[in-house]
Simulated scan of single mutants.
Amino acid sequence: MTLISSTRDLRSSEKTCVLFDADGRIRHVHTVVTVGGAKPQTEAEIERKAQHHAGLFQVKAPLIALHVPQAELQLGGPVMVDPKTRRVVRVRG
């Protein structure tokens, strides 16, 4: 008999979209996990949902979307987006 120990075993994709302001501050992070057999969402669908959810949290500034691997947000400290290069970077402080 085979048992599945976690939902991680069922994942077929994981996509993350960050919304950041003109200064590079990440204002909202939206991650979508697709499990086996489900239709993956497009980047446009993920951005639309991210913007909608950010609005629910009263985030009003014009926000720019950036799709990144989840691992880029795990840099061992606070992160932001460099607005010029559109890359996630560690906050130096």
Rank of each mutant, 00 (worst) to 15 (best):
Met1Val: 03
Thr2Lys: 09
Leu3Glu: 13
Ser6Lys: 02
Asp9Lys: 02
Leu10Arg: 12
Leu10Tyr: 12
Leu10Glu: 11
Lys15Cys: 04
Lys15Ile: 01
Thr16Ala: 06
Val18Gln: 11
Leu19Cys: 09
Leu19Thr: 03
Phe20Ile: 02
Asp21Leu: 08
Asp21Lys: 07
Ala22Pro: 01
Ala22Ile: 04
Ala22Asp: 14
Gly24Ser: 08
Arg25Thr: 07
Arg25Leu: 07
Arg27Pro: 03
His28Leu: 10
Val29Phe: 04
Thr31Asn: 04
Val33Thr: 13
Val33Arg: 15
Thr34His: 09
Thr34Ile: 04
Val35Glu: 15
Gln41Ala: 06
Thr42Cys: 07
Thr42Val: 03
Ala44Lys: 12
Ala44Val: 03
Glu45Pro: 06
Ile46Trp: 03
Arg48Ala: 15
Lys49Gln: 13
Ala50Asn: 07
Ala50Pro: 07
Gln51Ser: 10
Gln51Thr: 08
Ala54Asn: 03
Gln58Pro: 00
Lys60Asn: 06
Ala61Trp: 00
Pro62Arg: 10
Ile64Cys: 05
Leu66Asn: 03
Leu66Lys: 01
His67Asp: 00
Val68Tyr: 00
Val68Ser: 00
Val68Lys: 00
Gln74Ser: 13
Leu75Val: 01
Leu75Cys: 01
Gly76Trp: 09
Gly77His: 10
Gly77Arg: 05
Met80Val: 02
Val81His: 09
Asp82Ile: 01
Asp82Asn: 15
Pro83Gln: 14
Lys84Trp: 02
Lys84Arg: 08
Thr85Leu: 02
Arg86Tyr: 01
Val88Asn: 15
Val89Lys: 14
Arg90Phe: 07
Val91Leu: 12
Val91Gly: 03
Val91Arg: 12
Gly93Leu: 10
